[in-house]
Design a protein around this nucleic acid. Structure first.
Length: 599
RNA sequence: ACCCCGGUAGCUCAGUUGGACAGAGCAGCGGACUUCUAAUCCGCAGGUCGCGCGUUCGAAUCGCGCCCGGGGUACCA
């Protein structure tokens, strides 16, 4: 496959990014520090962690009245050791080790242990975030490699709105893992070697229009595919011929290979253009075809190991032990399918990269497929962690979209409309801005809105697409966050203009209003938020966090004077805004959303 | 028939894996721009967490049984 601009340019796959944090050795993630402290408290008070059902840890509180973090372990422990939970909580609190992070602790209710972060530590920690390029995120993945498999659509068809989710969610997780210190290899596993080529080749020969192919190739390819596919549904002989064309292609037939190359090249142009608009790029773009020469050998290995055996003319792996249906690895016509390719792909990736994990980001329909593939890989002896992060299908209010019924919305049309709507808002809000700049802002805001609308939902829920939801510009939306960021940048610029030569960073952070503490607590929770989002495969955890952060900042900004505050306090507030901006920027970058200094 | 998801305010969705009184955004109503960006902020109203049993100090969250919706179940991917 040709290299193309979807590839990440210039960056060595194995290179560590960013600057090492000075504080790497000692974690400053509040949840970690407090969990360690509480563990020690329980131990010193004479309780064994093993007695605590569900383990010992702290969680952020929902209500600031109950502290910043709470530990609930005293209550489940009570029964095991036969003591009153409240007493347990009190004795643990008495035994807690001193730590600069921990301000105070108190027992509450039936046996909650409420923990308050120390104000001075909060200020110091918040200030540190202002210079730490990692914003306190620990390198939990240091020395480990993840292959991320996402954003690999079946080609020869135009991308529609349903194709947004994989690169969007996958890309966000990819960047989070990199920030967490993993070596990440992002691979777009294009569907370029399957049955759809047999169907497309037959359709092209029978129905193809040379002139349309010149003018609008992707539309034409889709048109002939649909015609051929429909015919295959009612014409058994046609379907058989489609399959034969695929087998010929897979066997290296010259004419089919030439057609295939042409279709792939056209598809990559389209993919390149749209992924370019979305800012999506990969370390590798290896389609299924990359593994074509390994398929025969893969099946041979499965046979040697006694895993695959003939069944109804095909070759299948039976997975009764895993309570899974049989998995076909070679069709009765001799052709190979998706499962064969995916097994070969695991083999290849393990050989080449020795990954600790391979993470696949696809839609929910592939759950069974991956369970089968993973089971087969385990039987082959691979101990690489194989994970399937799946997301719900995108639907329209009237149901699933269908090419035949013309209810497909093309991804490019969505991006166009997003930019159009954003431009109208920019023109209304910033009439003085040069037109070229307005267009640039509209582009970033429009794409940001589309991405955010998708990422802010739990991936595993079905997304019902509506224009107004996908293009929301206010409320819990990407533009809201971009606006919050731009406002902070505006304050900083005004500060620099009005107080030339002064540097807010030389003043300590102060807590003069309760909301400042609220803001600071959120800021220091960035690391644990990123970690939780990555490990649970849910970028929505980051969007929720950022939205909450921006809301608290906006309320703060609206309620108290910044530039008109007394000297000292003024610097503290500008500085706190600056830290907030850094977190917003980093968070939005993780989501693949651009930030702008002025919108 | 079986397997996997989902059901929370009028609508769209959160809910940190069992914690304290269930939260946002839209939409609705009422306020705040001669002032650091009003793409904003403040307030009001809005709930049988699909239904029923159960588990326990404690359930939207866990178990069982139903009801609705989506997806999947060997030669598509």
């Amino acid at each position: 496959m040709q290299a193309n601009s979807v590839l990440r340019g210039g960056r060595g796959v194995g290179m560590m990014r960013g600057v090492m944090s000075e504080q790497d050795a000692e974690s400053s993630v509040p949840a970690d520090v407090l969990t360690a402290a509480v563990r020690e408290g329980f131990a010193r008070a004479g309780f064994a962690e093993a007695d605590v059902p569900g383990g010992l840890s702290v969680v952020a509180t929902a209500n600031p009245a109950f502290g910043d973090y709470q530990c609930n372990a005293a209550m489940p422990l009570a029964k095991a050791v036969g003591r009153a939970p409240r007493r347990i909580a009190e004795s643990v609190i008495a035994a807690l080790p001193a730590h600069p992070c921990l301000g105070r602790a108190e027992a509450a209710g039936p046996g909650f242990i409420n923990l308050f972060l120390d104000d001075a530590w909060l200020c110091k920690q918040g200030a540190a975030l202002g210079t730490d390029p990692r914003l306190g995120v620990p390198r939990t993945g240091r020395g480990r490699t993840i292959v991320m498999d996402y954003g690999g659509p079946n080609i020869t068809k135009p991308l529609h709105i349903g194709h947004l989710r994989s690169p969007n969610i996958g890309g966000a997780l990819d960047r989070m893992y990199r920030l967490l210190g993993y070596r990440v290899i992002a691979d777009s596993h294009l569907g370029d070697w399957g049955t759809q080529f047999g169907i497309t080749i037959m359709g092209y020969r029978e129905y193809g229009d040379a002139e349309a192919m010149e003018r609008a190739p992707m539309e034409e390819l889709e048109r002939v595919y649909v015609k051929s596919y429909e015919r295959s549904r009612r014409d058994e002989a046609w379907l058989t011929r489609c399959r034969e064309e695929l087998v010929k292609l897979q066997a290296g037939d010259a004419e089919n290979t030439a057609l295939w190359k042409r279709f792939v090249a056209l598809s990559l142009e389209e993919l390149d253009r749209i992924y370019g608009r979305l800012g999506v790029s990969f370390d590798l773009v290896r389609g299924e075809s990359y593994y074509r020469d390994r398929l025969r050998e893969t099946v041979a290995v499965l046979r040697e190991r006694g895993l695959a055996r003939p069944s109804e003319g095909a070759l299948a792996v039976f997975l009764e032990d895993e309570k899974l249906p049989p998995c076909i690895v070679r069709k009765s016509d001799g052709g190979f399918n998706y499962a064969t390719t995916d097994i070969a792909t695991v083999m290849s990736r393990v050989e080449e990269f020795q990954p600790d994990r391979i993470v696949y980001v696809t839609d929910e329909r592939q759950q069974l497929h991956f369970r089968q593939v993973f089971a087969i890989c385990r039987r082959l002896g691979y101990d690489t962690a194989l994970e399937h992060v799946w997301f719900g299908l995108m639907r329209l209010p009237e149901g699933t979209f269908s090419t035949r019924e013309g209810t497909v919305i093309r991804l490019e049309a969505l991006l166009d409309e997003a930019e159009r709507r954003a431009l109208a808002v920019v023109q209304a809000a910033s009439p003085d801005m040069p037109a070229a700049r307005q267009a640039e802002v509209a582009r970033a805001v429009g794409v940001g809105a589309v991405k955010y609308a998708d990422l802010s939902q739990n991936p595993q829920s079905v997304v019902t697409f509506t224009w107004d939801k996908a293009l929301a510009l206010d409320g819990n939306s990407g533009p809201y966050l971009q606006y919050a960021y731009a406002r902070i940048a505006g304050v900083r610029n005004k500060y620099d203009a009005r107080f030339p030569g002064r540097d807010p960073e030389t003043e300590p952070l102060r807590l003069s209003e309760p909301v400042e503490r609220e803001l600071l607590i959120r800021l220091v929770r960035f690391p644990e938020t990123v970690r939780r989002a990555a490990e649970s495969g849910k970028p929505s955890i980051v969007t929720d966090y950022l939205y909450d952060l921006a809301q608290v900042y906006s309320a703060y900004y609206q309620a108290v004077p910044f530039l008109k505050a007394p000297a000292g306090l003024r610097e503290s507030r500008v500085r706190l805004g600056g830290v907030t901006a850094r977190v917003l920027r980093r968070g939005l970058e993780l989501l693949g959303i651009e930030v702008l200094e002025r919108i």
